[in-house]
Write a protein that binds this DNA or RNA. Structure first.
Lengths: 163, 163
DNA sequence: CATTAATGTCAATAATGCTGACATATTTTA
DNA sequence: TAAAATATGTCAGCATTATTGACATTAATG
């Protein structure tokens, strides 16, 4: 499929790898900068964003489920979750099948904030995708998927993308 | 160059973009996990890693230069820098041309730690590159470069990679 | 009924960021 | 040369987000 695939990869210099490392650093910085500005207006931080994001993505997710995805302790999550619930951004509903569980949902206000945060971040990604081209996007996805820890892999959705 | 370049990019769904966003989150987590384990042994954090990384990359960099690259306040940087200097990981030399400036260097111990941190991180990137293929790596680089804030672009080295 | 599981909470600690204020040495400029 | 700007360092206070450990409540399960 690609003349370079097999051979060229053996010649990855430390310099090339270091540049990849720095690229991750600078790109992640850019990636979070737009939502960060919005969060500040609300007195929230990135932890709130992450909670809101994954509650939006998996409506009715349990506290434990969210904990596992985020990879933080329940004490850590509980603090931001309590704030979001107090602020009427998130609603916590007692489970039906298992009444010990709490199922998390975004309220209307929560959905509104989610949309604000999401739209600026999506815009950044969209522009980066557009400028790079669909071929590059596939490569981007491939490399990043391989960078994810094995035990987190179940949480990433595989996207076909006409493959 | 690519049939999809122009047309397909217009059909980027929110779902595709959200998956890209999550991929950045999970990949960055994996990306930092190996160095984090080493840093813990030293009682250091990611801030120390970043300082060490960029001092290694730009030997004799000034405090101001490092500040600009990292994008933090001097008070923030000073705390970790002081520790690293106290621990004999970093040496601060008075500038020759401008005696107000301090030029930063890794000591032998600093270089040793840098190598430890760097090697596990490079290994993770190398494996991800290898599994994805050189074509994907080019795409990865393209997309990430486009995600970087414009004012940070001067700090990322453009790498040809047989383009 | 005893155990386990899911959640919530309190307290203490740490790393990393911020702002504001101030000090020192050195260079540049008017 | 005197004044202003620059580079650095430091102190204090505060915020966010993470940790560990301990303990309580409620509900499910053996």
């Amino acid at each position: 499929m690609d003349r370079n695939q097999t051979n060229e990869m053996l010649f990855l210099t430390d310099e090339q790898l270091l540049q990849g490392i720095e690229l991750m650093f600078f790109a992640y910085k850019g990636f979070t900068s737009d939502p960060d500005r919005i969060l500040e207006e609300y007195g929230y931080g990135r932890a709130h964003h992450r909670a809101i994001h994954f509650i939006n993505r998996s409506d009715a997710i349990t506290v434990n489920g969210l904990l596992t995805i985020l990879g933080v302790t329940k004490q850590s999550l509980n603090r931001v979750l309590r704030q979001l619930i107090d602020d009427d951004m998130v609603e916590s509903r007692v489970g039906v099948a298992d009444k010990r569980q709490r199922h998390l949902h975004l309220t209307d206000a929560g959905q509104e904030l989610e949309k604000k945060l999401s739209s600026v971040q999506r815009e950044r990604v969209r522009e980066a995708y557009k400028a790079a081209g669909s071929n590059a996007v596939q490569g981007f996805r491939k490399v990043l998927e391989n960078m994810v820890d094995a035990d987190m892999k179940p949480h990433i959705e595989q996207l076909g993308m006409e493959r």
